[in-house]
């Protein structure tokens, strides 16, 4: 630091001489995080925004699908005690319930997997740990969605 104290005038009393005036305005300071021409393209993608919106839209649809599913399987007609192969065959005889279950499977798996992705990003601090956990998550998710879809489409009531 220089021992020269003349610059201290600039931070003098409120009435002191201002460094700037109408003819010599203070330099323009850009708003923080403003999108400019220099912002890299990659940060403009909106995957996270789409994921955020998907969580909310799928959540609304899932309320209907999941609560309906719980009512049918656990509450009406004697609860779980009625569930068995014959009961499944009766329900999947109708395309309506096939579509219901298919939609519920896909939405719940994608909603849950995206939620777990967030949880992994929050708690796994090492890049390698995140990579492996997400690899495991995506593998399990794809496997479960494909298996469930296959079962719904290839169900055979006369398997025996």
């Amino acid at each position: 630091m220089s021992s020269d104290t003349s610059s201290a005038q600039a931070i003098g009393s409120v009435e002191g001489v201002s460094l700037y005036d109408a003819d010599n305005p203070a330099p323009y300071i850009e708003a923080p995080r403003k999108r400019t021409g220099k912002t890299p393209r990659s940060t403009r993608g909106n995957f996270e925004m789409a994921a955020w919106l998907f969580m909310r839209l799928s959540g609304i649809v899932l309320v209907v699908l999941v609560i309906g599913h719980l009512l049918i399987q656990l509450v009406l007609d004697g609860g779980v005690s009625k569930v068995g192969f014959a009961f499944v065959a009766g329900r999947w005889a109708s395309p309506f319930w096939q579509v219901w279950d298919l939609l519920m499977l896909w939405l719940a798996m994608l909603h849950g997997a995206n939620g777990l992705r967030t949880v992994i990003n929050d708690y796994a601090e090492r890049a390698n740990t995140r990579l492996w956990l997400k690899g495991l998550l995506y593998t399990a998710t794809v496997f479960t969605i494909l298996l469930g879809t296959l079962v719904i489409f290839t169900f055979d009531p006369n398997i025996r």
Binding site: V88, M109, T144, L147, G148, D156
Partner: peptide
């Protein structure tokens, strides 16, 4: 739970 639940339901493709 959902992961396990899809696995158990898949048993309808094995046998009643």
């Amino acid at each position: 739970f959902l992961f396990v639940h899809v696995l158990d339901t898949a048993l309808v493709r094995v046998s009643p």
